[in-house]
Design a protein around this nucleic acid. Structure first.
Lengths: 223, 223
DNA sequence: TGAAAAATACCAACTAGTTGGTATGATCGT
DNA sequence: ACGATCATACCAACTAGTTGGTATTTTTCA
């Protein structure tokens, strides 16, 4: 009495073995990151997520009240993961906050590796589809993007005090612009199917920051 | 024998009267722009589009072979509409190509009016969801974005020859970066539910361009 | 300590409603 | 009369979410 539960040709039966003892909730969240970044929130069915995570629907709805709740949790999980990633990144070693900010930009450039769904931003993808229809997800994405920008803004603010105290722009605004360039570059990369255009965008952003801080030389400072 | 065809609470029965004699195909395309920009491609059901256009399903599938074909047609229609919009825009009056490019940026800033779904980009929204799952739509979006960038690049190229002939960056790359800033600013605006952050992004872009062309004054040149 | 009680974690099968798409017929201009 | 345009009725597959139940862990308290 074998029962075929695979109903869609697109549903790949990959039980995904990311270490056998990962808690189910985390497995579902990890699967959601992958699937949503690949096909978007709306097109990612609960069955897709379960198949990718190697989990049954019962388990899914035990951990999440609804698909929307999963969306919110995925955005929060993304905030946590990226927060840890950037917290542990090497650019924080620099003594000068401007070098830290430029190091951050370079670090973002280095993250542009692999295939498109692997380096693009989950919350940037999700908020495009959900900003009108799922306010809870929109808010979670807002927290993720703007919270991250607030962290970056700390270095920018310090750098501004030292290197450009009288500039007209605000640190917050420049941090958000940085996020906008990255998000937009991801869109172009998706349209082209290539990472090169995104790397170009990061290069333009770096040059802009060098201009803002009157650093017209190459920018390669200490060490 | 009244038949209730409204099945969803979200389906607003707006037969939408955009002039009675608009051809059906165009009505469907116009409706698609509105609905897809609001909720994305995947979440926009065929019934949604028909309801918004005031058209039956039979008419829909008479004009479009599939939902995917509608997506491609909508992207092409978007290219046509935006092409005409920018072709008729006032910034082309300027004699200096740099003024035309700066005028283009200002024009993009002026387009940031109304509610979020009204000024955001259809193809930027669609390509995020479809780049892996619907190659035909992805390609149509790619043509729209990169084709538009190619138009903008003409003025940049001419401006570069005059004002910054030895610069390291290419006109094409700067044109694409311009699109990236806009697309990314739309994402931030969606996350915030506000246009202000997008306007900030455009201001940063303008300052960058002024830097690139050594125009450190306010940029208000002839007339 | 240790067994009973109570959460918690999970599962397979099911459901009510939705989805993109179709079959067939009506209407219209020429 | 006839092809193009549109309307109605319909469908098979899919969708988010439920159900009733079992396994496992945690808590309670004698």
């Amino acid at each position: 009495m074998i029962v075929f539960t695979m109903k869609k040709a697109t549903a790949k039966a990959k039980p995904q073995p990311p270490s056998g003892k990962t808690p189910m909730r985390t497995r579902i969240l990890d699967a959601s990151l992958a699937v949503v970044r690949e096909k978007g929130y709306a097109a990612a069915t609960v069955d897709d997520l379960c198949a990718k995570a190697g989990v049954t629907k019962g388990a899914f709805f035990h951990h999440f009240d609804s698909k929307e709740a999963l969306g919110v949790a995925a955005a929060d999980y993304w905030s946590q993961l990226t927060g840890e990633l950037f917290k542990g990144a090497p650019y924080h070693r620099h003594a000068d906050p401007l070098d830290r900010f430029l190091g951050y930009i370079d670090f973002r450039g280095e993250l542009l590796q692999g295939k498109v769904p692997e380096f693009t931003c989950l919350v940037g993808t999700m908020v495009q589809e959900t900003y009108e229809t799922h306010p809870a997800i929109r808010d979670a994405c807002q927290r993720s993007i703007f919270g991250h920008a607030r962290e970056v803004a700390k270095d920018i603010e310090a750098a501004k005090k030292i290197h450009a105290p009288h500039a007209a722009w605000t640190a917050e605004s420049l941090a958000l612009h940085t996020q906008a360039v990255l998000q937009g570059s991801f869109i172009l990369a998706k349209a082209e199917g290539s990472v090169a255009v995104a790397a170009d965008g990061v290069a333009h952003l770096r040059r802009y920051v060098e201009f803002l801080f009157q650093k017209n030389q190459t920018g390669k400072t200490n060490q």
